[in-house]
């Protein structure tokens, strides 16, 4: 049996409400809140980035995995906000965990799908027997241009998963991918903010690839939507995943716990992995969980996990997602937010 042996998350404490952003740009907050199914989003502190969120999430995952860091054979970090263009995020994460030097490390990039790419490779490296444990992380301090629709949703957070073959808390049942070349969202080299194809990001992009991955994995495993206890889709906003879930035959109780966007925003590479962590926070043993990411460009990774009795033993060894999401929040005004996100031009 291979699968998840530990998981952990980190979400910044700072938040900004949709009303605060709408006030600055003269837009109608209720329209955005209703249209995006989103009320507020997380904001990283100026001293937080993809690397710090990854390390802190991974440390929480290690609290649950209860393994020697030296036994981690691979560390993979998926993000579209790696702080360096050239210098790995993974080396810093590995060093901070104490996994160096006998560890394989790589940084992944595939828009919002980079986190599940890291998880996919980590799982299959363990499955192949090459490494004892592998860490897959999805983390982002997402970019959204001032005034753009993305500014209301682009947020920050990370989820880390230790994959292994011993003391598994969620067994991997199967994986499947769905990929095409679809240019719906991109960020060019040296560009501060991404650009996107507006409504083109919906039907031919998010919807097509998510549905493609769901249908493929269900066919492969001979399962139906009703056979799954929980499901998580990528959450660019709170509307797309709900629409998608209902159209594919899933019901609200299946995605209720994993749908975090309304109070978290879109954590890009951390999005569906954080939803999975929130679902593991509430799942009982022997329940099945479907997670399907979506990354622009475009593709979806699908996984089905089945929880084990071991989950109950390790769950409370690290903070729950809802605790990080709902407690001790610090709200920002737009001016503070602009400073935190380096949107104010200052003399060098």
């Amino acid at each position: 049996m291979i699968g998840i042996v530990g998981y952990g998350t980190q979400i910044p404490r700072y938040r900004i409400k949709v009303e605060e952003i709408a006030k600055v740009w003269g837009t109608d907050a209720p329209t955005y809140k209703r249209g995006l199914n989103l009320n507020e989003k997380s904001v990283p502190s100026p001293d937080e980035d993809c690397i710090t969120l990854s390390v802190n999430a991974a440390r929480n995952a290690m609290l649950r995995a209860m393994i020697d860091p030296a036994d981690i054979g691979a560390v993979y970090v998926g993000s579209e906000s790696h702080p360096y263009a050239v210098k790995p995020t993974g080396t810093i994460v590995s060093e901070a965990l104490g996994a160096c030097p006998y560890v394989h490390t790589a940084d992944f990039e595939f828009a919002c799908k980079a986190g599940t790419e890291a998880m996919f490779v980590a799982l299959h490296l363990v499955k192949s027997g090459v490494v004892k444990y592998a860490l897959g992380i999805g983390a982002d301090t997402s970019q959204g241009a001032p005034g753009d629709a993305l500014e209301y949703s682009a947020s920050a957070g990370a989820a880390a998963f230790v994959m292994g073959a011993k003391n598994v808390i969620a067994e991997l049942i199967d994986t499947h991918c769905f990929m095409t070349d679809t240019p719906d969202f991109w960020r060019r080299e040296n560009a501060h903010y991404p650009e996107h194809g507006g409504r083109f990001t919906g039907e031919p992009s998010y919807m097509k690839h998510t549905a493609g991955a769901v249908n493929a994995i269900l066919e492969k495993t001979k399962m139906k939507p009703g056979d799954l206890d929980y499901m998580i889709f990528h959450q660019p906003n709170g509307k797309f995943p709900v629409q998608m879930a209902f159209s594919l035959g899933f019901k609200e109780p299946q995605f209720r716990h994993g749908l975090l966007t309304p109070t978290l925003g879109n954590t890009y590479s951390g999005s569906s992995p954080l939803g999975l962590a929130a679902t593991l926070d509430v799942a009982k043993p022997n329940q099945t969980i479907l997670i399907v990411s979506y990354g622009s460009g475009a593709g979806s990774d699908a996984f089905i996990f089945k929880t084990t009795e071991k989950l109950l033993e390790i769950r409370d060894k690290a903070p729950l997602v809802r605790k990080q999401l709902d407690e001790h929040l610090m709200y920002l005004e737009y001016g503070q937010y602009a400073k935190f996100r380096h949107k104010i031009l200052k003399p060098e």
Binding site: D47, E48, I51, T52, V55, R59, I92, A96
Partner: peptide, 22 residues
């Protein structure tokens, strides 16, 4: 917690270390 401490300008190295939080 693991945090960003400072950086050598916009093109230099980024320094990470511990900070403390409540």
């Amino acid at each position: 917690k693991f945090r960003r401490i400072n950086e050598d300008g916009k093109t230099g190295m980024i320094y990470y270390a511990y900070k403390f939080v409540p």
